[in-house]
Structure formats: structure tokens, C-alpha cells
Simulated scan of single mutants.
Amino acid sequence: MNIQDFKYYHELVNLKSYTKTAEKFGVSQPTITAAVKRLEKKFGGKFLIRDQSHKNIIITKLGMQFDEHVQSILNEVNVAEQEIKQEATANIPFGLPPIIGRNFFPTLVPKLLEKRILNRLSVIESGSYDLHQLLVEGNINFSLLGLTQPNVASGIKLKIIKRYPICIIVNKDHPFAKKKTIHFKDIADEDFIGLNSDYIHTRALDRMIKKNKISLNTIYRSPDVTVVKSLVAQGIGISYLTTLAINQNDDVVALPLLDKEKPEFILGAATRENHIMTTKEEELWQILTKDIKKED
């Protein structure tokens, strides 16, 4: 039994064709057949039935269950291969969402410089959902993430660093600016400027819209938080943003929501539970999670 047999088997289940599977791997059909027989003999089950009259392949229930395990095995092998490659380069693949990169990460830089870790980081900037998937697949080893709920995939270790409210932001001359707080439903008739789908704000916003049974007049969506704040400051519309992304130089007013159930922007540090850290990676993890309350 070898890993290649698992690869043959999984592709055969997907393609349901010995011919196409053999062509994909550049081998003969008997090679694929032999691999399946070895797996069935090793595990003592019947995974496939070959209908010679119709030249079809029927995947048994046991065969489908076995393929679920095969996929897990192949994913673990891929993760191991990625980790070995990363260790050889001595870099630390590190995920950084845009908002966190601009507003939180700079506070860590002095310590990262002191420990000589900053120049070892191979930073990948993307949305938290994409970075979470890259962690699962082993393409990065560590990431800061923005979440609305402290839920991550099985096998991912999460340490919550801090929670920030998500507020309605308006121009200083907007009628809402005189309020101290606001209900989400109050923004139903306002021109709204949103972020694109890469941001967790968008999904959090969708949940609030459904919960309050309202619709928003979204006039523009931007991939850039700075653009959103600038448009709001000009009075073009209002928006929905975490306080982490708002600073004293922004010419906007942030209004906390009065709703009982309202999403938060949860800032967390994540790695894989089965990842064996190098010395530098252990130092990085300590810097990311130092002095935080245990909320995970």
C-alpha cells in the first residue's frame, strides 16, 4: 500500500472511469485496477463494482465511506509536504487580513524586530475566510484572523486576542451623528456603502439584514476600508465597520448598536493543532498570544 494508490482511488471515484483515470496519471488501466485490488485486500472490503455490460463503475456505500478517509489522508500528506518545504526555506508563511494588518499588526512590530522574526515572515494578505482555508490546507502555518464567531475548522487552534464592536459610521453632519446609539433597523432608508465579500463585515451585515427583515440601499461596495471611510466622511452614505478600523483621524462618527444580538469583530491568532513549531515559530506564537485572556 502506498500514497499513490490512494490518489488513484480517489480520482477513480471522482471520474468513475478507469480509462480517464489512467490517462490523467499517464499510466495503464491495469495499474489503476491493481491499485484498487490492493486497497480492497488491505482493508477487507468491496469498494467498487464494475458493470461490464454498460462499462460503468458503481461505488459501493463502503467505497464512498472509504473515499472520505482517503481524502483526509491525502490532505494530511499535502500539509506535511508543505511544512517540509516551508522548513527548508526557513520562512514563516503568515496570513494577515487587511484591517488587522493596518490597525493591529503594527503594535507587534517592535517585538518581532527585537526577536528577529519580522524579516522571516512571508506575509500573505487576504480576507480572513481565504486565510482560514490556507491554514487548513497547510499553505500557511500561522494567521491573524477576523471572525464574527469564535468557530474554526477541526484541527485549527484559535486564541482570541480581543473583541471589537461593529458600529454604524456616519458623516459628522449626518442627523444620526447627534445620537449616542442606534438600532440597526434605523438605517433601512439610508444610502449604504459596503465592503466587498472578502470581509467578514459583509456576512455579518447579511445576518443583521435578515434578522431585522429590512433591505439596504447599497450604492457602492469597495475592497478598501480607507475608501469606505472617505466616502462616509464626504457624506455620500453610511457604513458598518469595526471600531478596530476607525481612528481619531477619520472624519466619521461611530454609533454603537442597541440591538441585543449584534456581531463583534473577534481578533484571533490561529495555527494548526498538529503543526510542530520551530523555535522562531514558537516565539512568534508567544508574541501573538501574550497576555491574552483565555476565551477559546
Rank of each mutant, 00 (worst) to 15 (best):
S122F: 00
K61W: 08
N119L: 10
N139C: 06
I124V: 13
I73K: 15
L121G: 04
I156E: 02
L145A: 07
T148H: 11
L96S: 03
P106Y: 13
I84T: 15
K85N: 12
L145V: 10
T89W: 03
V109Y: 05
I84L: 15
V152M: 03
R120F: 03
L118K: 08
L96F: 01
K115I: 12
K115P: 04
N75H: 12
R50F: 15
N141I: 02
R120S: 04
L131M: 06
A88E: 13
A80K: 13
L118R: 05
I156G: 02
Q149T: 14
E76M: 14
E137C: 06
F47D: 00
V77Y: 13
G101R: 09
L135G: 08
I100A: 09
R120D: 11
V109N: 09
G101P: 06
N139K: 14
G63D: 12
E81L: 13
A80Y: 13
F142P: 00
P110F: 03
Q149D: 14
E81W: 07
M64I: 06
I100Y: 07
N103E: 04
S122Y: 03
Q82W: 01
G101T: 01
Q82N: 13
V77A: 12
Q65P: 03
I58R: 12
I59F: 08
E137I: 05
R120N: 12
K61S: 12
Q82H: 15
I124M: 03
L112H: 04
I49Q: 10
A153D: 13
S128D: 02
L147W: 08
N139H: 12
K157F: 11
Q52D: 05
H54M: 09
F94A: 07
E137F: 07
N91S: 10
S72L: 15
I117H: 01
E125G: 06
Q52A: 09
L113Y: 09
E125N: 02
G138D: 07
G127A: 03
V152R: 04
G138R: 02
I58Y: 11
D67T: 05
Q149E: 15
Q82G: 00
L134T: 11
